[in-house]
Amino acid sequence: MNIFRLAGDMTHLLSILVLLLKIYATKSCSGVSRKTQELYAIVFLARYLDLFTDFISVYNTFMKIVFIASSLAIVWCIRVHPMVKRSYDKDLDTFRHYLLVAASFLLALFLHEKFTFLEIFWAFSIYLEAVAILPQLVLLQRSGNVDNLTGQYVFFLGAYRGLYILNWIYRYLTEPRFTRWIACVSGVVQTALYADFFYYYFISWKNNSKLKLPA
């Protein structure tokens, strides 16, 4: 474990806590893409299939459970909870996210570290996570003004994988046989998808103005 990866995991956890706060405090999921939340639930379920078979550390197991439980809880909230469900922007959240699932799985069938069930699902989860934010970014562009908590949620979610890139550089430099090309390339693509969001987020922070993504 290095400082970059710990900071990345904490930033990821923070993004989830901010989203939970937003939904709990405002009893609303306006501006939140249910599809992105569903994709993230699939990402965690596919990536942590080894939850009960490979024990890495208490921290690792604990965080995996937190990520799986929180992502399922958020999807449940948006789909089932009557107050929250009513505020879901159904006609704005129209990204065909099942195409992202299909494309990621197809890519994982061809590009993986080993042709085993766990490795293919792990690669699938890596590719899917890289594009999982797309429905959310599209929704933000369509919904015009973005409330602070939703903006912070997306910012921390994008920042965590950026910190992971620093972690991979650090591990590549310090560990002789460390290579994680699939995660690394995917992580760079994932972070790059946030580039314009980060730009407008920085502008709104600098001018102390409302975050607004151009349509």
Binding site: D50, D54, I56, N60, W122, Y164, A183
Partner: peptide, 10 residues
Amino acid sequence: NDDGDVKDEL
């Protein structure tokens, strides 16, 4: 798993 590339990251 036993071989080198244990998935130790989240």
